[in-house]
Design a binder for these strands. Structure first.
Lengths: 340, 340
DNA sequence: CTGAAAGCGCTTACAG
DNA sequence: CTGAAAGCGCTTACAG
């Protein structure tokens, strides 16, 4: 492997100059720079990242943490962030929590992240009280996406979950529904993420605005997946008279709900209306009514929010938080309740 | 930041011994190891990865390259690989080609991968003639998943694409279809991946076994996405009399086909049958007939295939290739052709 | 089983 | 604008 000394020798300069020239620092004369570039090209020289990192103190890598990889929202955020990050010359280390508390602990309380990256992107990652200290101790710039838990001093890129839930619920209420169920994420314990809490809040808020007291029997918690939506809907049907409409906190949950309703002999939307949140790629195929959120934009903006402080050597001010707009997309899974 | 010298001083040993004790090397006495462990714990010491990498020559990181992140197959492979890799203590650097030749070139012909990882996982990554030299020059153990292009000396984890296509086509033929269209990936140029070629081959093979000569007008190329399936189907309808059945090379393409057929006023399966490959999470919701392939298992096994050579210091023999089984899953999107 | 010393391959003040 | 030298924080023969 050719090293910096080889290039220095061939170009007839010091290694310090090679280092400067190759990194594009301004304090190198045009002539010298050209000589170095040519020597490097001729030898096929590429600096060792490990050596650069050790000497320079920067890893040029960012850790992206997601609760799952496959769901539409997360994979879309990662895809968008990946593009922006690589374009800016940063490596992307991917960490999946997979819903396992063990993985979460490993990430926060072992050497997993220690000096491995220059910045952190936490996507819908739940943090309990003591976890903030662990995150802060890393001393890195960071950003949260789709507020798992807001980290003090970090910007957050997200949608207004309360408003999104309000829009979905309002759509069902305006159609005439009064017996509306909600399928959402777990918002009971310390690790609940604000997304779940906010979507439930928006739902209940609209209900109360119509003089309806939220019925605990019509509120089921599940994971943000098709399987979660299936299970929650089965539970709902088990509890007695089905609702006339279901507001699911994600499109994947909504699709699971539709599948289970149909298997139970109920028609959508004739017997039960279903609305989700996301505007998943397949929602158009399924004809699912939903509140669309811009996932790719969130990934892109989150990466962008990191690049500022990263370029500013970690000292610059944190980027501002941003709240992106959502939009009701009416398709075929919602309709007025049956007249009977 | 505490460094190895601090630990050595506190434990009353040399840094060499600290290094050995912390990494669990056998050549350290029990008593010494305990003293070192305690000192390290007391100081909250974690070795600098950059320093370890430079001194040790190993990065303990693996690069995973995918053509896209969001599609079901790729996100599922990545999720499974991530779990296995992190469990084994390796970082996962994610690279998305995104269908861009520029990204592909950057990955292969710049410093992107150089000395950054100890191994490579190429998922459905197309390689042209000269690219093999670029990959080989990295001198790393590797594995391909879902054969983009087989790399000499690397194991490949995949399904039998010819057999999967045969099973799908046979299902349609057995139902009585004779006018069957195929929507597949681009298999025309040098960068075509074997998946596309093999699925088309299995399709044509079965057709010919029934005495049917494949009709170019019923063969459309597209990307492996819902949008791709939509576009291809629109093109198919534009070309004249619709087929009575469509074999799409992926479930996402199949879903796009279904959406476009319905928008054109055609019923599925009454007017047109549609079958895919994958068994995507939502295929059950949509009622899509498909040839199921185990995506998570492929990701897991590919990671496993890397861990062998990785532990063997990169010299051990390559892991064996593996071909996983597929399975026809009949749902509601396929039926006999109309009698008329 | 343990230590002194060299080495991994860069970058960064410092001096000029 | 450029160079000599120290330093980044580990691991690895080598010797004992």
């Amino acid at each position: 492997m050719t090293k910096i000394d080889d290039v220095a020798r061939l170009a007839g300069v010091s290694t310090a100059t090679v280092s400067r020239a190759l990194r594009g620092l301004p304090t190198v004369s045009q002539a010298t720079r050209e000589r170095v570039l040519e020597a490097a090209a001729q030898l096929g020289y590429i600096a060792s990242p490990s050596a650069s990192r050790l000497a320079g103190g920067k890893t040029r890598a960012v850790a992206v943490v997601v609760p799952r990889i496959t769901p539409w929202f997360f994979s879309t955020v990662v895809e968008a962030a990946e593009e922006r990050l690589h374009q800016a010359g940063y490596d992307l280390l991917l960490f999946n929590l997979g819903g396992s508390e063990h993985a979460r602990q490993r990430l926060l309380y072992t050497s997993t992240l220690h000096r491995r990256v220059d910045a952190l992107m936490l996507v819908a990652t739940p943090l309990a009280g003591r976890d903030f200290a662990a995150v802060t101790r890393l001393g890195l710039p960071g950003v949260t996406v789709s507020a798992g838990t807001p980290v003090p001093g970090w910007p957050c890129v997200r949608i207004d979950d309360v408003a999104a839930a309000r829009a979905a619920t309002e759509h069902l209420l305006a159609l005439g529904h009064r017996r509306i169920a909600h399928i959402s994420g777990d918002s009971s314990d310390e690790l609940a993420i604000s997304t779940h809490i906010d979507r439930r809040r928006g739902f209940q808020e609209r209900l109360r605005a119509y003089g309806i007291e939220p019925d605990p029997a019509l509120d089921v918690e599940a994971t943000f997946t098709i399987a979660g939506g299936r299970g929650a809907t089965a539970e709902l049907l088990r509890r007695g008279e089905p609702p006339t409409a279901i507001f699911a906190a994600s499109d994947e949950m909504a699709m699971g709900a539709i599948a289970t309703l149909r298997e139970a002999g109920l028609r959508v939307p004739e017997d039960v209306s279903v609305i989700g949140v996301d505007d998943h790629d397949v929602s158009g195929v399924v004809g699912l009514t939903t509140v669309a959120q811009p996932a790719a934009a969130q990934g892109r903006l989150a990466a962008e929010a990191l690049l500022g402080p990263l370029r500013g050597a970690g000292d610059g001010p944190a980027s501002p938080s941003v709240v992106l707009p959502t939009r009701l997309v009416v398709r075929d899974s919602t309709a007025p309740p049956r007249a009977d």
